[in-house]
Amino acid sequence: MQLEILNLTKLYDQKRGLQPTSFVVKKGELIAVVGHNGAGKSTLLKMLANWILPDSGQVTIDGIDLKNRTAVVKKVGFVPEVPNLFDFFSVEYNLKLFAFLFQTPFPRVDEILREFNLLAFRKNKIQELSKGLKQRVNIGRALLADPPVLLFDEPTSGLDFEMTKELYRLLHTIHEAGKTILFTSHRPEEIKSLATRIMVLHKGSLVFDGSPQKYFQSEVHENLYA
């Protein structure tokens, strides 16, 4: 699996959005996209998830253009910052609905419920769950079709310290299972030991792309977060 991003651009006005950005994601990488609010992190991930259409540029996954949505949709799973589930239905209903649409057999739903410790909540309505549980259901849904690439937009947003730690453990487990992951964060210190690669966006431009060790020794970190 290889994700190639070439001159991907989305500008809301002259200052906000993402300037032309190019990079390649290889199989098994766990990439943290870091930057302050408004740096263009979410815009980048949403374009990779087909939520936002780019102004220009191209994204391919294993050579297939991302514009061919139905062909790549099972290859990329996206977990947005705010869980987008049918609130008034149960956890099980939500997962089964999406499993049906993904043409995934229903036993996969039981697997997800088990893997994410959601069995006890399967009959609960989404609106009755805590933010952390909702996020788990959201991640579970993204994994239903077993996509090789997973995108997480601010996965720890709104979570307390314990839940943040639990979520990072979950990301680690998913990565260990062979998935390629891109996730955004505006707190680089937290993902020091987790990411295999760090990309820093600043005012819509990619200003650093390298290993965590190099990043924490670089001027970029000093200038942005010191």
């Binding site: 087909n50 949505r69 139905t70 949709v73 705010v82 987008n84 589930l85």
Partner: peptide, 14 residues
């Protein structure tokens, strides 16, 4: 508003 449509468009539906 709740991004449910975008969630549905993450599946192979047209």
């Amino acid at each position: 508003e709740k991004k449910l449509l975008l969630a549905l468009l993450q599946t192979p539906i047209r």
